[in-house]
Computed example of a mutant assay.
Amino acid sequence: MPRTSQPATSSTIGAVDQIDLVEWYFDQGWTDGLPVVPPTPETVAAMVAELGGDPNHLEARVPPRWGNLTREVLAVNLVLAGCKPAYAPVVRAAILALCGSHFNLNGIQATTHMAAPLLVVNGPIRHEIGMNAGANVFGSGNRANATIGRALRLIMLNVGGGWPGDLDKSTLGHPGKYTFCIAEHEEASPWAPYHVEQGYRPDYSTVFCIATEGPHSVTNHVANDPQGVLDSLVSAMSTIAHNNAVSSGSCAVVIGPEHAVTIAG
Protein backbone atom coordinates (compact mmCIF):
# COMPACT_ATOMS: atom_id res chain seq x y z
CA MET A 1 0.00 0.00 0.00
CA PRO A 2 1.52 3.39 -0.94
CA ARG A 3 1.78 5.87 1.90
CA THR A 4 2.44 9.57 1.90
CA SER A 5 4.99 10.93 4.34
CA GLN A 6 2.58 13.10 6.34
CA PRO A 7 -0.86 12.45 7.84
CA ALA A 8 -3.85 14.40 6.60
CA THR A 9 -4.52 17.97 7.69
CA SER A 10 -7.44 20.29 7.04
CA SER A 11 -5.75 21.73 3.95
CA THR A 12 -5.32 18.33 2.28
CA ILE A 13 -8.91 17.44 3.12
CA GLY A 14 -10.27 20.45 1.28
CA ALA A 15 -8.19 19.74 -1.82
CA VAL A 16 -9.81 16.40 -2.65
CA ASP A 17 -13.50 17.09 -2.18
CA GLN A 18 -14.35 16.22 -5.79
CA ILE A 19 -13.17 12.60 -5.74
CA ASP A 20 -14.10 9.36 -3.98
CA LEU A 21 -12.62 10.16 -0.59
CA VAL A 22 -12.89 6.65 0.80
CA GLU A 23 -10.79 5.29 -2.05
CA TRP A 24 -8.48 8.30 -1.91
CA TYR A 25 -7.62 7.57 1.71
CA PHE A 26 -6.87 3.97 0.77
CA ASP A 27 -4.57 5.25 -1.98
CA GLN A 28 -2.76 7.52 0.48
CA GLY A 29 -2.24 4.63 2.88
CA TRP A 30 -4.01 6.39 5.74
CA THR A 31 -6.34 3.54 6.70
CA ASP A 32 -6.05 0.42 8.84
CA GLY A 33 -7.31 -1.73 5.97
CA LEU A 34 -10.96 -0.81 6.55
CA PRO A 35 -12.83 2.15 5.05
CA VAL A 36 -12.51 5.35 7.04
CA VAL A 37 -14.82 8.31 7.62
CA PRO A 38 -13.58 11.13 5.34
CA PRO A 39 -12.85 14.17 7.52
CA THR A 40 -14.12 17.63 6.65
CA PRO A 41 -12.83 20.96 7.95
CA GLU A 42 -15.96 21.18 10.09
CA THR A 43 -15.63 17.76 11.72
CA VAL A 44 -11.93 18.28 12.35
CA ALA A 45 -12.60 21.71 13.87
CA ALA A 46 -15.19 20.19 16.21
CA MET A 47 -12.65 17.62 17.39
CA VAL A 48 -9.96 20.27 17.88
CA ALA A 49 -12.39 22.33 19.94
CA GLU A 50 -13.15 19.31 22.13
CA LEU A 51 -9.41 18.89 22.66
CA GLY A 52 -9.03 22.50 23.81
CA GLY A 53 -8.38 24.39 20.58
CA ASP A 54 -4.98 25.38 19.17
CA PRO A 55 -4.65 22.87 16.28
CA ASN A 56 -0.86 23.23 16.17
CA HIS A 57 -0.39 22.24 19.81
CA LEU A 58 1.94 19.23 19.99
CA GLU A 59 0.38 16.47 22.09
CA ALA A 60 3.05 13.80 21.64
CA ARG A 61 5.64 12.26 19.36
CA VAL A 62 4.63 8.75 18.38
CA PRO A 63 7.22 5.99 17.91
CA PRO A 64 8.77 4.26 16.09
CA ARG A 65 8.80 6.96 13.40
CA TRP A 66 8.44 9.63 16.11
CA GLY A 67 5.87 11.57 14.12
CA ASN A 68 4.45 14.77 15.57
CA LEU A 69 0.92 14.34 16.89
CA THR A 70 -0.57 17.82 16.88
CA ARG A 71 -4.14 18.39 17.97
CA GLU A 72 -5.18 18.78 14.36
CA VAL A 73 -3.57 15.49 13.35
CA LEU A 74 -5.11 13.83 16.40
CA ALA A 75 -8.49 15.26 15.41
CA VAL A 76 -8.17 13.98 11.84
CA ASN A 77 -7.46 10.46 13.04
CA LEU A 78 -10.39 10.62 15.46
CA VAL A 79 -12.69 11.49 12.58
CA LEU A 80 -11.16 8.82 10.34
CA ALA A 81 -11.91 6.23 13.02
CA GLY A 82 -15.56 7.28 13.35
CA CYS A 83 -15.27 8.83 16.82
CA LYS A 84 -17.69 11.33 18.27
CA PRO A 85 -16.10 14.50 19.73
CA ALA A 86 -16.99 13.26 23.23
CA TYR A 87 -14.54 10.38 22.76
CA ALA A 88 -11.60 12.71 22.10
CA PRO A 89 -10.42 13.10 25.73
CA VAL A 90 -10.25 9.31 26.14
CA VAL A 91 -8.16 8.86 23.01
CA ARG A 92 -5.85 11.71 23.98
CA ALA A 93 -5.33 10.31 27.49
CA ALA A 94 -4.60 6.90 26.02
CA ILE A 95 -2.08 8.07 23.43
CA LEU A 96 -0.29 10.19 26.04
CA ALA A 97 -0.05 7.10 28.24
CA LEU A 98 1.26 5.01 25.34
CA CYS A 99 3.86 7.61 24.39
CA GLY A 100 5.19 7.97 27.93
CA SER A 101 8.66 6.58 28.56
CA HIS A 102 7.29 4.02 31.04
CA PHE A 103 5.25 2.20 28.36
CA ASN A 104 7.86 1.54 25.65
CA LEU A 105 5.52 1.95 22.68
CA ASN A 106 8.58 1.90 20.43
CA GLY A 107 9.22 -1.70 21.43
CA ILE A 108 5.56 -2.69 21.18
CA GLN A 109 5.21 -1.18 17.71
CA ALA A 110 8.34 -2.87 16.35
CA THR A 111 8.36 -6.24 18.13
CA THR A 112 8.11 -9.56 16.31
CA HIS A 113 5.64 -10.65 18.99
CA MET A 114 1.89 -10.19 18.47
CA ALA A 115 1.31 -7.74 21.33
CA ALA A 116 -1.05 -4.78 20.95
CA PRO A 117 -2.03 -2.10 23.49
CA LEU A 118 -5.22 -2.95 25.36
CA LEU A 119 -7.08 0.08 26.70
CA VAL A 120 -9.28 -0.20 29.81
CA VAL A 121 -11.46 2.78 30.72
CA ASN A 122 -12.67 3.53 34.24
CA GLY A 123 -14.82 6.17 35.87
CA PRO A 124 -17.91 8.19 34.95
CA ILE A 125 -16.91 8.74 31.33
CA ARG A 126 -17.80 5.10 30.59
CA HIS A 127 -21.47 5.96 30.98
CA GLU A 128 -21.20 9.47 29.56
CA ILE A 129 -20.05 8.17 26.18
CA GLY A 130 -21.95 4.86 26.27
CA MET A 131 -19.12 2.35 26.47
CA ASN A 132 -19.76 -1.38 26.74
CA ALA A 133 -18.49 -2.99 29.93
CA GLY A 134 -20.74 -6.04 29.83
CA ALA A 135 -21.64 -8.87 27.48
CA ASN A 136 -19.36 -9.30 24.46
CA VAL A 137 -17.07 -6.61 25.86
CA PHE A 138 -14.20 -7.59 23.53
CA GLY A 139 -16.53 -8.02 20.58
CA SER A 140 -18.41 -5.90 18.09
CA GLY A 141 -21.44 -3.68 18.44
CA ASN A 142 -20.40 -0.65 20.50
CA ARG A 143 -19.32 2.52 18.72
CA ALA A 144 -17.35 4.03 21.59
CA ASN A 145 -15.30 0.90 22.31
CA ALA A 146 -14.69 0.20 18.64
CA THR A 147 -13.76 3.68 17.45
CA ILE A 148 -11.67 4.71 20.46
CA GLY A 149 -9.51 1.64 19.99
CA ARG A 150 -9.45 2.15 16.23
CA ALA A 151 -8.36 5.78 16.60
CA LEU A 152 -5.38 4.67 18.68
CA ARG A 153 -4.38 2.18 16.00
CA LEU A 154 -4.73 4.75 13.22
CA ILE A 155 -2.48 7.12 15.17
CA MET A 156 0.08 4.35 15.67
CA LEU A 157 -0.03 3.71 11.92
CA ASN A 158 -0.35 7.17 10.42
CA VAL A 159 1.76 9.11 12.90
CA GLY A 160 3.91 6.44 14.51
CA GLY A 161 4.64 4.64 11.26
CA GLY A 162 3.96 1.18 12.71
CA TRP A 163 2.99 -0.40 9.39
CA PRO A 164 3.00 -4.20 9.08
CA GLY A 165 6.00 -5.44 7.18
CA ASP A 166 7.78 -2.12 7.59
CA LEU A 167 8.45 -0.79 11.10
CA ASP A 168 5.89 -3.20 12.59
CA LYS A 169 7.79 -6.50 12.57
CA SER A 170 5.07 -8.67 14.14
CA THR A 171 5.13 -12.12 12.59
CA LEU A 172 1.44 -12.91 13.16
CA GLY A 173 -0.31 -9.98 14.82
CA HIS A 174 -3.83 -10.41 16.21
CA PRO A 175 -7.30 -8.87 15.70
CA GLY A 176 -6.73 -6.43 18.58
CA LYS A 177 -4.46 -4.53 16.22
CA TYR A 178 -7.62 -3.13 14.66
CA THR A 179 -9.23 -2.07 17.93
CA PHE A 180 -8.69 -3.20 21.53
CA CYS A 181 -10.67 -1.11 24.01
CA ILE A 182 -13.00 -2.05 26.86
CA ALA A 183 -14.47 -0.52 30.00
CA GLU A 184 -14.57 -2.04 33.48
CA HIS A 185 -18.03 -3.00 34.78
CA GLU A 186 -17.42 -1.31 38.11
CA GLU A 187 -20.99 -1.61 39.33
CA ALA A 188 -21.00 -5.41 39.03
CA SER A 189 -17.60 -5.94 40.64
CA PRO A 190 -17.18 -7.00 44.28
CA TRP A 191 -13.85 -5.17 44.31
CA ALA A 192 -12.88 -1.53 44.09
CA PRO A 193 -12.53 -0.29 40.50
CA TYR A 194 -9.05 -0.63 39.07
CA HIS A 195 -8.39 3.12 39.01
CA VAL A 196 -9.42 3.42 42.66
CA GLU A 197 -6.99 0.63 43.56
CA GLN A 198 -4.31 2.71 41.84
CA GLY A 199 -5.07 5.74 44.01
CA TYR A 200 -7.57 7.72 41.92
CA ARG A 201 -10.89 8.98 43.23
CA PRO A 202 -14.02 7.08 42.13
CA ASP A 203 -15.34 10.16 40.32
CA TYR A 204 -12.19 10.46 38.20
CA SER A 205 -12.12 8.97 34.71
CA THR A 206 -8.93 7.15 33.75
CA VAL A 207 -7.41 4.95 31.08
CA PHE A 208 -5.14 1.97 31.70
CA CYS A 209 -2.94 0.57 28.93
CA ILE A 210 -1.11 -2.75 28.77
CA ALA A 211 0.36 -4.56 25.77
CA THR A 212 -1.17 -8.01 25.45
CA GLU A 213 -1.82 -10.88 23.11
CA GLY A 214 -5.37 -11.56 21.97
CA PRO A 215 -7.93 -12.71 24.55
CA HIS A 216 -7.54 -16.30 25.74
CA SER A 217 -10.60 -17.97 27.22
CA VAL A 218 -10.21 -19.86 30.51
CA THR A 219 -12.81 -22.59 31.02
CA ASN A 220 -13.87 -24.32 34.22
CA HIS A 221 -17.40 -25.74 34.37
CA VAL A 222 -16.85 -27.62 37.61
CA ALA A 223 -15.46 -25.38 40.35
CA ASN A 224 -17.77 -23.16 42.36
CA ASP A 225 -15.21 -22.08 44.93
CA PRO A 226 -12.45 -19.42 44.82
CA GLN A 227 -9.54 -21.87 44.72
CA GLY A 228 -10.97 -23.84 41.82
CA VAL A 229 -11.54 -20.75 39.70
CA LEU A 230 -8.14 -19.29 40.56
CA ASP A 231 -6.37 -22.58 39.86
CA SER A 232 -7.75 -22.49 36.33
CA LEU A 233 -6.65 -18.88 35.83
CA VAL A 234 -3.15 -19.56 37.13
CA SER A 235 -2.85 -22.66 34.95
CA ALA A 236 -3.71 -20.63 31.85
CA MET A 237 -1.13 -17.99 32.77
CA SER A 238 1.72 -20.43 33.35
CA THR A 239 1.89 -22.57 30.22
CA ILE A 240 5.43 -23.39 29.09
CA ALA A 241 5.09 -21.71 25.70
CA HIS A 242 3.60 -18.51 27.12
CA ASN A 243 5.58 -15.43 26.09
CA ASN A 244 5.91 -14.32 29.71
CA ALA A 245 7.49 -17.66 30.62
CA VAL A 246 10.40 -16.71 28.35
CA SER A 247 10.79 -12.97 28.84
CA SER A 248 8.67 -12.26 31.96
CA GLY A 249 5.92 -9.67 32.08
CA SER A 250 2.39 -9.12 33.34
CA CYS A 251 -0.96 -10.66 32.45
CA ALA A 252 -4.23 -8.81 32.07
CA VAL A 253 -6.97 -10.93 33.63
CA VAL A 254 -10.56 -10.02 32.79
CA ILE A 255 -13.05 -11.77 35.07
CA GLY A 256 -16.80 -11.90 34.55
CA PRO A 257 -19.06 -10.75 37.40
CA GLU A 258 -20.19 -14.26 38.39
CA HIS A 259 -16.66 -15.58 38.80
CA ALA A 260 -15.59 -12.35 40.50
CA VAL A 261 -18.27 -12.84 43.14
CA THR A 262 -17.18 -16.46 43.59
CA ILE A 263 -13.55 -15.46 44.06
CA ALA A 264 -14.41 -12.63 46.44
CA GLY A 265 -16.42 -15.03 48.57
Results as ranks from 00 to 15, higher is better:
Q6D: 05
P7F: 10
T12S: 14
A15G: 10
D17Y: 14
D17R: 15
W24T: 11
Y25W: 01
D27G: 08
Q28S: 08
G33V: 08
L34C: 12
L34M: 14
T40I: 03
E50N: 00
G52Y: 01
G52Q: 02
N56T: 05
H57K: 04
E59M: 12
E59W: 10
V62P: 00
P64N: 14
T70Q: 00
R71I: 00
L78W: 00
L80D: 05
A81Q: 05
A81D: 04
G82N: 09
K84D: 06
K84T: 14
A86C: 09
Y87S: 08
Y87I: 14
Y87Q: 07
A88L: 01
A88Q: 01
P89Q: 10
R92F: 04
L96V: 11
A97S: 09
L98P: 03
L98Q: 04
C99R: 02
F103K: 04
N104G: 06
N104W: 06
G107R: 07
Q109E: 13
Q109C: 08
T111L: 13
T112K: 12
H113F: 10
M114C: 09
A115L: 09
L118Y: 04
L118G: 04
L119N: 06
V120P: 03
V121M: 05
N122Q: 10
N122K: 12
G123P: 15
G123L: 09
H127A: 08
I129F: 02
I129E: 00
G130P: 03
A133H: 02
G141E: 03
G141V: 01
T147S: 05
I148D: 03
L152D: 03
R153C: 11
G162K: 02
G162L: 01
W163K: 05
P164V: 03
D166L: 15
D168H: 11
K169M: 07
S170M: 12
T171E: 15
L172K: 15
K177P: 00
T179R: 02
C181S: 07
E186K: 11
E186L: 06
E187K: 14
E187L: 12
S189Q: 08
W191K: 07
A192L: 15
P193L: 08
H195S: 11
E197S: 09
P202C: 14
D203A: 14
Y204Q: 15
S205M: 04
T206L: 13
F208I: 07
A211R: 02
G214E: 07
S217F: 05
V218K: 01
V218R: 00
A223Y: 06
D225T: 10
Q227L: 11
V234E: 06
A236Q: 13
M237E: 03
S238L: 09
I240D: 10
I240K: 15
I240C: 10
N243D: 10
N243Q: 09
N244C: 12
V253L: 15
P257F: 00
A260F: 05
A264I: 07
G265L: 08
